[in-house]
């Protein structure tokens, strides 16, 4: 297949489309003025950002919520992934796999409304949860992010054959031991990426959070949304620049780490082959 200039051009256009808005966003965070013209370099939007207590408080709440939700989602999602990939047929499997995949495509407004009505009804019936706030946000976030973790873990489990686990079982290891000694280390990369995915989704969610949060518990996306709704605010550009830098550093770091691991693994394989031969 000859290399086609058309494909390369298409790829280039697509990548420019993806990156130019983000680059402009970053450039404008260092702009002195408010308007879309460059008037001079300035860091005063960053200074304002770090004095914006409402925004910083919301950011801290969001990080706490995302941390707890991602951890909960990883536990439930790993269980669900095991269930779907390793347990074969069980009663109600169809319903279960439907419930796992539905949040992936469910419009967020519906999820948010449904979760809120559940919390309201539960409170009427049992008195719990009392009002809405961090607790209800976390419960809702665990529910919608665990599906993503399940998919990641399940696909990792399906791509690995079960022979190691089977061998360990044959040798008499208990299921729990098999899971913690064999399965868990093998699927650890999937669990880590599932956690990161859940963390990001939780940190980023606006719609579901708006339904289930109460007065006094506004997350970062809610604060950003209400400020963006009123128009452009360069503080948000500064915030975006910080978020993009953290994400880029994290992903580059993970990329380098993976490449290094791969290199080590190849070297070990070569050594093993040389010794074997």
């Amino acid at each position: 297949m000859p290399k086609s200039w058309f494909l390369r051009f298409g790829l280039l256009v697509g990548l420019l489309f993806l990156y130019i808005p983000i680059l402009l966003l970053i450039v404008m965070s260092f702009n002195e003025g408010r308007l879309g013209v460059w008037t001079g370099f300035s860091l005063h939007w960053y200074a304002q950002l770090f004095q914006n207590d409402q925004l910083l408080g919301a950011a801290w709440l969001s990080v706490q919520v995302a941390f707890v939700s991602a951890s909960g989602a990883v536990v439930l999602g790993t269980m669900a992934g095991m269930l779907l990939a390793r347990f074969g047929a069980f009663r109600g499997r169809a319903l279960f796999s439907g419930m796992v995949s539905a949040p992936l495509v469910m419009p967020e407004v519906i999820m948010g409304l449904a979760m809120l009505l559940l919390f309201v009804s539960l409170e009427q019936l049992t008195g719990w949860p009392e009002g809405r706030g961090m607790m209800t946000i976390i419960l809702a976030h665990i529910t919608f992010t665990m599906s993503f973790v399940t998919v990641v873990v399940q696909s990792r489990l399906v791509s690995l054959d079960a022979s190691l686990e089977e061998a360990a079982m044959d040798l008499g290891a208990r299921p729990a031991k098999v899971f913690f000694v064999i399965t868990l280390p093998i699927i650890a990369p999937a669990i880590v990426s599932g956690w990161l995915l859940a963390f990001t989704l939780s940190l980023d969610d606006l719609v579901i959070t708006s339904f289930v949060s109460g007065p006094g518990s506004s997350t970062l996306p809610q604060v950003v949304f209400s400020s963006v709704r009123l128009g452009v605010s360069p503080q948000i550009n500064a915030l975006a620049t910080i978020v993009v830098s953290i994400v880029a550093l994290g992903i580059l770091g993970a990329g380098f780490y993976n490449a290094r691991q791969e290199k080590l693994r190849r070297r070990d394989e070569q050594l093993a082959q040389q010794q074997g031969g």
């Binding site: 402009l24 606006l206 975006a240 993009v244």
Partner: peptide, 14 residues
């Protein structure tokens, strides 16, 4: 991996 809201906001600026 960056925020959804931030990506929408980027287009407001443009």
């Amino acid at each position: 991996w960056t925020s959804f809201l931030i990506r929408v906001y980027a287009w407001i600026g443009i």
